[in-house]
Amino acid sequence: MRVVVDYDLCESNAVCMGIAPEIFEVRDDDFLYVLDEHPPESMRAKVEEAVQRCPKQAISIAED
């Protein structure tokens, strides 16, 4: 699984970071950084939750 963020949509509200801080981090420059683009399968439920919760529909999962 690959985590894809559409940065044109992302508004850095850090919702995803609240759900999976291991993968998503909003830094002091107010930009979102994906720390792990290829998270382990064990993280899938968390990533899916972030996909659902992102108010901007900016996150998607691509299958490798």
Binding site: N13, G18, V26
Partner: peptide
Amino acid sequence: MNRPRHVIQLRA
């Protein structure tokens, strides 16, 4: 206000 990271972390 314009501090999303802090809010999300403190929300926990």
